[in-house]
Nucleic acid binder design. Structure first.
Lengths: 375, 375
DNA sequence: CGGCGCTCCGGAATCGTTTGCAGGCTAGGA
DNA sequence: TCCTAGCCTGCAAACGATTCCGGAGCGCCG
């Protein structure tokens, strides 16, 4: 009784009757028809008399009939569901992609089953197993570090952002290598020679590519190899790594932080230690976020094409579901460098530990202006 | 052929055979048993001989049998799926709640079907319809502005964060009224008398409560009523509203921004106009985010208990699914004020338009220190 | 006028799983 | 020895929708 009271508030508009879900069988019985006829009428198939169709549609409308997607899925052997497996929805990085995925799938009549793994291979495995049990028709996956953890699936898979190393599946990534090189190129073009890199989990393909891209860029420019610190993508590691860098011997004049969280921690720590940015130390990040242009100073960063990555992943998966049989795609989407306030020539600012930023113009001027680079 | 090549990479661990999904029927045929016996053995029911059970389990293991969740859902009339409908996953506000929801549901063996509405009642309606069609067992919903848009559902619903005005459903909200009052109290205790409010969509219950809380607090303190500007939650509106306030007559000495995006826009605009914060203008926000303590100055804000809201919403829904029949709960969770660098006594700082923040200590000192308030 | 083709419709099988019911079997007590 | 209470197992009916097949009715052409 209470349950009825609790839930009927949401029924009033649509359901005249409180009880749940009218079925085709009930409509058929009411109209003295066969279930098959009702089904044909409701799905708009031919070979149904006009009068009969009208009657069925009217009855369906009257009772608020809605097809039972579970039964339909069982019989048609298509659930119109897609599974999406991401490490973390709090991370803007994945949230942005996922949002685009969701919209694309919805536009094409697919529902989205979301699973979060926290980069835990075990959770990833169970998530994939659950998705398979639910008979999803395809999966978009940000694979975790260990390649074997990618579970048992017998359906189209798109690996997004990270790759597990398999070449037989479609992959859509950011052009990490080139983007990192672009950031390094920017720092080098300002005159920096001692450039350090702070990066995340070395098991991730993203980290490896970013570090490799940075190293290659330095080598290509004839600069000394960078000091590279890797551990994870936490803000704490950004803080810790920055501390190590600036308190160590021969501190760098510029730091490339390979993710926004790392940049955040690094920036915070530098400011806590009284290191002027960009006066004494330049900082460039990979991965743009909302708050990079409200930080003081606003953070120079390579914006990653997250929406595009999501969009393309969705398109590829949808094309596979539509039956496309071309060989696997391996897409790489380029980002763009946004120069803001945390990078400048080494030792250029006279007001070393006390950057001016209250004028506002310096914050707004260069912000959001795309800049060419090594690309 | 290509499809096989594409997908079998994900089968290798679990499925010895490439073809999809062994069924109970096939196991039964192989062992010369009835399907019902196989089913009983697999679901661990009694009245199955030990030898038979062993054989069935072994065959299932060997073929990588997994129950078809769709068929099971149809027969058992339980999908073990929960629908979650939120306005926007890019908003940290909702992403945080959703993450907690997902984890809770997963821990209890439920999958999560996610829909995004963008605050569009039409999309909300279709999303709810789709969830109902998918036979989800419960829904967590951030209702959009118009109450009638909440669609036809005949199952437990929890309204999260916002409410549609119905009292028959469970609701879990932040204590907006009290939290807004706390922020106003903080500003007033610093000596501010001319306090303005920038808020979002007046249709949202959250906006109404925040504004009402602010107004009530001012009245209770004997202060003049605030100038209140409402429109939406975009950063652009924060910018625009701040411009109106400071260029208008009798500009306020303090501004309460009712969401983080609004605060972001407002802060940006104030700095662009050369208004010193907190020297000439104090700014307090409702809604904490990652970047509030890396802004310069770091933003004083009321942290909302998003994780708790998600957790409680999940618990309530799960208890309903377990059959709880108590009368509807209306939970309100309190936030806490985090005083950082954007609030001070009016005219207290001599270095008006050029706040010092590079020392770092001033940024770290008060940050993250919870402070009592009006509560 | 027979046959062919067409439309409209009902019966029944099917998707994979669960479950009520009944039959066969064994064991134990009367 | 017989009866009954149990355990194991198989048969068949569900769940709700789709779909194949076939039959009835009709019109049309040869």
């Amino acid at each position: 009784m209470l349950t009825t009271a609790l839930t009927c508030g949401y029924n009033e508009i649509f359901c005249g009757i409180v009880c749940g879900m009218v079925t085709q069988k009930q409509i058929a019985r009411e109209l003295g028809l066969a279930v098959s006829t009702v089904s044909r009428a409701l799905t708009g198939q031919p070979h149904v008399g006009e009068a009969t169709r009208k009657a069925v549609l009217a009855a369906a409308e009257r009772h608020g009939y809605r097809p039972n997607a579970v039964a339909r899925a069982l019989r048609r052997r298509e659930t119109r569901m897609i599974g999406v497996v991401v490490p973390d929805m709090l991370n803007h990085f994945y949230a942005a992609c996922t949002t685009v995925l969701q919209e694309s799938f919805e536009d094409h009549g697919y529902g989205m089953l979301l699973a979060v793994t926290g980069n835990d291979p075990q959770r990833e495995r169970t998530a994939l197993a659950r998705l398979r049990d639910a008979q999803v028709e395809g999966v978009v996956l940000v694979p975790s570090a260990t390649p074997r953890s990618t579970g048992p699936l017998d359906l189209p898979v798109v690996e997004m952002i990270r790759t597990s190393g398999r070449t037989q599946v479609d992959t859509v990534q950011c052009a990490e290598h080139e983007t990192a090189a672009e950031a390094i190129g920017h720092l080098a073009s300002l005159g920096h020679r001692r450039i350090a890199v702070i990066a995340g989990e070395p098991e991730f393909s993203t980290t490896r590519e970013r570090v490799a891209g940075a190293r290659a860029a330095l080598a290509g420019l004839g600069l000394p190899p960078a000091r590279v610190l890797t551990r994870d993508h936490t803000r704490a590691w950004g803080t810790e790594a920055m501390r190590q860098l600036v308190t160590g011997e021969e501190p760098p004049t510029a730091v490339f932080a390979a993710s926004s969280e790392l940049a955040l921690g690094a920036l915070h720590e530098a400011q806590r230690l009284g290191i002027g940015i960009p006066g004494r130390l330049s900082l460039a990040a990979l991965g743009n976020t909302d708050w990079f242009d409200v930080c003081r100073p606003p953070v120079t960063a390579c914006a990653q094409p997250l929406a595009e990555v999501g969009m393309i992943s969705a398109q590829i998966l949808l094309s596979r579901l539509a039956g496309a049989r071309r060989s696997p795609s391996h897409i790489r989407v380029s980002g763009r460098l946004v120069v803001r306030g945390t990078t400048s020539a080494p030792g250029a600012r006279r007001d070393g530990d006390r950057p001016r930023e209250a004028s506002g113009a310096s914050a707004d001027g260069p912000a959001n202006s795309p800049t060419g680079g090594l690309g």
